[in-house]
Design a protein around this nucleic acid. Sequence first.
DNA 1: ACATACTGTATGTATTTTCTATACAATGGG
DNA 2: CCCATTGTATAGAAAATACATACAGTATGT
Lengths: 302, 302
Amino acid sequence: MAKHINLNRLAYFTAVVETRSFTAAAQRLSTTKAVVSQQVARLEEEIGTTLLIRTTRNVHATEAGLAFYARCITILREAEDAFDALAERAVKPSGLLRITATFDYGISVIVPKIAAFTALYPACEVDLSLSDERIDLVSSNIDMAIRVGWLSDSTLQARRIDSFRQILVASPQMAPAVSHLDSPRALETLPFVANSALRHPLHWNFSHGEDDPIAVRLRAAVSIDATLGVLAAVQAGAGLSVLPDYIAAPLIGSGELIHVLPDWSLPIGGIFVVFPAARYRPAHARAFVDLLSTPAKRCYCR
Amino acid sequence: MAKHINLNRLAYFTAVVETRSFTAAAQRLSTTKAVVSQQVARLEEEIGTTLLIRTTRNVHATEAGLAFYARCITILREAEDAFDALAERAVKPSGLLRITATFDYGISVIVPKIAAFTALYPACEVDLSLSDERIDLVSSNIDMAIRVGWLSDSTLQARRIDSFRQILVASPQMAPAVSHLDSPRALETLPFVANSALRHPLHWNFSHGEDDPIAVRLRAAVSIDATLGVLAAVQAGAGLSVLPDYIAAPLIGSGELIHVLPDWSLPIGGIFVVFPAARYRPAHARAFVDLLSTPAKRCYCR
DNA sequence: ACATACTGTATGTATTTTCTATACAATGGG
DNA sequence: CCCATTGTATAGAAAATACATACAGTATGT
C-alpha cells in the first residue's frame, strides 16, 4: 500500500487538464508553473502512472489521466461544497441551538428572548432545558448555559450579559408587619423563606447609601431550593424573602408583592452565559448572545 | 474567498470522529496524537468552525462537525476509489493500446503478436495503425511505435526488441541470371528494385566472413517506397532487391523467392519499440512489450 | 480519598514539503 | 533564423509537518 495520498495535488492536475497548459494552470491557481509542474510530477510519482503527456508545446492527458480527471473533478466539487456549507453555517445562523437556563431567569427572560430569536432566524430551532442544576455542557451537547449569580467553575468560557438586583419582598398580606420597618435589624425576628439553592441563603448584606453594609442573619421559616418555589411561598404568606428583580419587579408593579425596605439595597448579581470550551462559536450561538446582550427595555425597579 | 483548502486534513478529522479519540486516530493513521491534534486544529482554524468538542476525557463532534463528517467520508471514499482504479490499471493491463508499425513488420510479426496479446489480456483492445511514415506519437495519442532499421530521432524513449537480417532476393524466374554469381560486384549491372523508404536505397555493404565489406552501388530499375511493394515488384520479376528476413524467409522456404549470394550478408538491422516521452508506461504497453521481447521460435534463415 | 494511567494539548526541534526565482532546452511562429 | 513561449530543472527560502517530550486535567481502580 502506498504511504499516503496527497489530495491537494488533485487541484493542480485538474487545472492543467482543464487549461491544457501548465502555464495557464499556474495562473488560475495564482502560483508559478514550476510549482504546478512539480506537484503534478509528484502526483504521477505517487501513483506510478503518467497522467499527462507533455511536449514543449502541448499537454494532454493519457487515457488513465482522463479517467482519473473525471473522478478528480467530482471529488473537488464535493469538497468545495462541503466547505461552502460549513462557511454558510458559520455565517448564517441555522440549525439547532441547545440552551440550558435556570427556571426563574429562563422563564422570565430567556423564553421571551428565544421567541424573538426564532422569529428573527427562522432557520434556527431552539431547545431550552430549564434546570437549576449545573449540567455538563459537553456531555449534554449544549451550546450555552445561562447562569445566575456568581461563577464558580472557571474552566468554561463565560460572558456577563446582564446583572440583577436582589429585592426584599413580602406578600401584601404582610404589609402591616413590614411597612413600618426602617432597619434590616428588625428582619431577624420575622419569618423568612430561604432559597437553599444559594450558597448563603440566610446571610444578607444590606446597604444604605454610602454607609457600610449591615450584615443580617435571618431565620428560615421555610427552605426551598428553587427561586420560583420561594416566590410561591412568599405569595402564600410564608414570610419575607429575597427575589431577583426580574421576578419581583413585575409583581411589585402589579401589587402582588410589596417591596420591603425599599431604601436598602442588596448585592448586585450577574447573569452569565457560559459556553463549552470550543474554539469557534457556532453562528447561531453568537447570534443569540448578541440578542441577549442588546439592552432590554425592561426597567423593573425605578 | 478563503486562501486554499487543504484536503489532506480531512483524513485526520474523520479518523478522530470514527475512533472518538485523538489517540486512537493517531494509531490508525500511524502517527502521533500531537500531529492529529494539530491537523484538526488547523482544519478548524481554516474553516472557522469548531468541529469537535474535546474534554480531556472525551471527544465528540458538534452539529456542524457531524454534517461535515458525512461529506468527508464520501469524499475520501471517492478519492480512494480513484487512486485504486489507477493502481489497478497500472497493474492489470486493460484499456485501449494504440500501436503503429510499418506495414511489413506489422503484418508479418506484430499482427500475430497482437492476436496472442489480446488472447492473454481480454480486457485489452489494440488499435494497430500500419504506416511507413513516422507518425508523431504524442499528437496521435499512440502508446508505442514499432520502427524498423536505425533510429534517427533520439528524443524518444526506445528499446530494441528484435533484429533482422537483410536478404538479397530475386524471383525464381531470375534464377538463371543470379544463381551463378559469386561476388556482389556482379550485381551492379542487374536490375534492382529500390526501396525508397530507406535512407540509402541503392547503397549496400556486402560482407563475406571476416573480410572487409564490399560497398556496392546498384542500379534502380524500379523505386517503390514500401517494402511490401518492393516484394511485389520482386515477385513480378522486376529485379533483385533486399528484403528483411521476416518477409523473405518464409517465401524462400516455400520457393517463391530465391536467396541470392547466400554466402554474403548485409548489415543487421534492429527492430525498436518507441514510446512517447512518458515517465510511467501504462501497464498494457508494458505487457505488450514484454510479449514482443519474448524470443519467438521463428528461425527464418538457416 | 488517592495514586495511577490515560486523555488532549503545548512546546521546541528536526525533517520534509512547498514556494520562489531563476536558468535552461525544446519548439513553433513570424 | 530570430524570438517568444512552452515545460522542466535547480537551488535556496519559507512553510508545513512530524517527532519527542512535558504538562494539566480527569476518569478509574483500589
